[in-house]
Design a protein around this nucleic acid. Structure first.
Lengths: 195, 195
DNA sequence: CGCATTGGCTAATGGCATTAGCTTTTAGTC
DNA sequence: GACTAAAAGCTAATGCCATTAGCCAATGCG
């Protein structure tokens, strides 16, 4: 019997494929059994490469968060000043729609209180830092910086979650609703800087 | 052996207790085994009263959503005009903090695409209707009503989710951040009505 | 060519949901 | 008050998943 030739990276890659194929619940539904099936290998063999399901989840999440941060970085480099934050909002929603499972991996579970998820936490902090930069570019005063970042994260994350779950009953143009939300948010934050 | 004297309602009640004791993940962690243990009964016995775990989850969710709607109704009756929407925002967050598991039951899973969750969907629609009333009370024009409700839901839900998951790293006053968010939201929506 | 490493396997255990089928309580009726 | 049928509990069995232990064969290095 020839070997499958797996390694840690290959397993994570296959797990990402499982997540991507699983739609909005892809990350929740990520299972060692599914990865093993995809690899053409028995389940216990995976333990030669990853420490277990929670560890695999962390690895997957790390990839997704790093990707997300990179996306935000690109946005920052391309957009100066006031259009940076809206661009980040749209980039976030785009990612969530293109790869709902990966978005779930980024935001879904509470890595925050997981002592083994240091790398994920660090990457998450980077993402927040990018947002903070964008908020600052709007002219929001320093003492409101944290509040503004929280408001931005809450609004975009909430919207995306509701959209992915199908929480917006009627099909009235969701794109328009998102533009409305972002415009209101940016408007509100800009007004802070004027005073 | 004396009987336990269960019935459908009692099982749901016990399930709610499990959810309440489980913190933010109480609903996800709801298990027939946990309910059975609490009832002092073997797991299969529960099937005499509920159709299975998914059905029990639906029942639990229904109770939680109905409670939530009732909370919003009370808010509507007590507050007129412009302070109705902020009051609903705070009521939502209060509920989420007091009973994170129940909040998860309300918003967590996608009942929307579950053909057996008609009752939950109806109750959910009622909740949205209450929010719509509150938005209207702010003077938002009709053609922006849906967008405004969506923005409100996104902002509050997103905030609450991030808070519950511990997503707000630093402990900088979260109450203040929430007030900031709500104030910005209400301000933005009020401004719509002026034009 | 030999051999250690390593990647795969099967088998076993334990948690969970679910189904089937049995027994005993319980409540209703004569 | 006794008889019976429904209801409520039980145990046993199945299946899916993760995890651990221990075995065997492929691979690569000297």
């Amino acid at each position: 019997m020839p070997r499958a030739g797996l390694d840690r990276a290959a397993v994570v890659e296959l797990a990402l494929a499982v997540v991507d194929d699983g739609g909005p619940t892809g990350f929740t539904d990520l299972t060692l059994a599914a990865v093993a099936a995809r690899a053409g290998v028995a389940v216990p063999s995976l333990y030669k490469h990853v420490a277990g399901l929670p560890a695999l989840r962390r690895e997957v999440a790390l990839v997704c968060v790093v990707d997300f941060v990179h996306t935000l970085e690109v946005v920052r480099e391309r957009h100066g000043g006031a259009d940076m934050l809206p661009a980040m909002a749209h980039a976030t929603r785009d990612l969530a729609r293109r790869s709902p499972g990966r978005y779930q991996a980024v935001q879904g579970t509470s890595w925050v209180r997981d002592p083994d998820a240091g790398a994920v936490q660090q990457a998450g902090a980077q993402a927040v830092a990018e947002l903070s930069t964008a908020v600052a570019a709007l002219g929001v005063p320093d003492e409101r910086r944290i509040d503004a970042v929280r408001a931005f994260r809450a609004a975009t994350h909430g919207f995306v979650v509701l959209e992915l779950e199908g929480g917006f009953g009627m099909p009235d143009d969701v794109d328009e609703s998102f533009d409305f939300l972002v415009a209101g948010l940016v408007g509100g934050l800009e007004r802070l800087s004027v005073r």
